[in-house]
């Protein structure tokens, strides 16, 4: 997994609540057997009309905005457990998603793929979205070590929470599988002694 410490980037504002993983990557694109290439179809049915033409109203198609931070409405990533959603977002080039609330499974999937979910208050999210829409050039800094997200040049900043174990994993690029495999002895002992 890629390491994450700090990121400075412009951001894309997605002013939609309850973005479900079917919108992030529709089911018809889940037939692949590897992890690559899902970015081409991220938010497919919002980015493109059914005839394949580009939907210029959708924010990802608005040339005013760019960057590797996605700022989205409340309850981001609800619905299906498909990790393809996290793969599609990272493959498109995002490294951070900011929202006031994340669905559990998506949050875990993001962390397992080096995509940092930054949960902020609803007030801060509103402020951030307004700032980006008023000035698309706005630079945002996310510092994982300090657990802060701030708008460069303005006095707008917030602290975000992250599990300390997951923080260490993100900073060092470790993943859970390494940790678990190193604990097989413990797991085998548990199996031999389980009470149920």
């Amino acid at each position: 997994m890629e390491k994450f410490t700090t990121l400075q980037s412009r951001a894309i504002p997605l002013q939609i609540e309850n973005v479900d993983t079917d919108q992030i990557i529709p089911a018809r694109f889940l037939k692949a057997t590897d992890r690559k290439g899902f970015g081409d179809n991220v938010f497919r049915d919002w980015r493109y009309h059914k005839d394949g033409s580009t939907n210029s109203d959708f924010v990802l198609n608005n040339s005013k905005y760019e960057g590797s931070i996605l700022v989205a409405g409340d309850n981001f990533g609800c619905g299906s457990s498909r990790e393809h959603a996290a793969w599609a977002i990272t493959d498109f080039g995002f490294k951070v998603v900011v929202s006031s609330f994340f669905a559990d499974i998506f949050k875990g999937n993001a962390l397992n793929n080096g995509l940092l979910p930054v949960q902020v208050s609803e007030d801060f999210l509103k402020k951030l979205l307004n700032q980006i829409e008023n000035d698309p050039e706005t630079m945002i800094e996310v510092n994982l070590e300090d657990q802060t997200i701030s708008v460069k040049g303005l006095d707008v900043s917030a602290h975000f929470d992250i599990d300390s174990y997951k923080k260490t994993c993100m900073i060092n690029g470790y993943d859970d599988i390494d940790y678990l495999v190193n604990n097989i002895k413990l797991i085998e002992t548990f199996e031999a002694q389980k009470i149920y």
């Binding site: 875990g108 999937n109 397992n112 859970d176 599988i177």
Partner: peptide, 22 residues
């Protein structure tokens, strides 16, 4: 409960998951 594919791999490898109790 439902899990992502990275977790599917974790269970394959260790029959366990790393989780915070809900």
């Amino acid at each position: 409960f439902g899990i992502g594919t990275s977790q599917v791999a974790q269970v394959f490898a260790s029959q366990c998951l790393l989780l915070t109790k809900p």
